[in-house]
Amino acid sequence: MKKIVLFILAVLGAAALGSVLQSLFNLTAIAALTDAIALPLWFQTIGYDLIYFMPVLAAILLPVMLISLLITALLHRYLKLSLLAASFGVTVLGTWLALLIINHFAPMPTLIALNRSTVGTLLLLCCSGSAVVIFQYLTHKRRLR
């Protein structure tokens, strides 16, 4: 039960972080076109995205992070790879593949605006990768010590 709660928190944490990053990227782009954006509008937009965009991102990341955990468990068990390093690598790769698949089948070239730039994409991948690493650390603390 504890693991399920922690996993859900990890997914929500990754999605929340990704959502905030996307807000900051979008607002930075708009600010560059308009001189400046008032501070309250930054917070309003971050809040708006947490309500309306974060659930979409969470729905994308949930299966990716779940499958990544399963693959990581196999790699750790049979290839003796470092649990945390494998978790990060597999999740980052899984998220990247998910974005490629989504963009291939979606009518638009790039569904998630953060995914339009290399830096944005890397940051988004780090969100899910880091969340899985934290999840693994919290659920395997004793073994990792």
Binding site: D49, F53, M108
Partner: peptide
Amino acid sequence: WPVATYGVDYTGARISPFTEF
């Protein structure tokens, strides 16, 4: 566009905080 828009992104994310500018 994209500074002033009444729409949001297909994911639900806000593109801009402005509807008019």
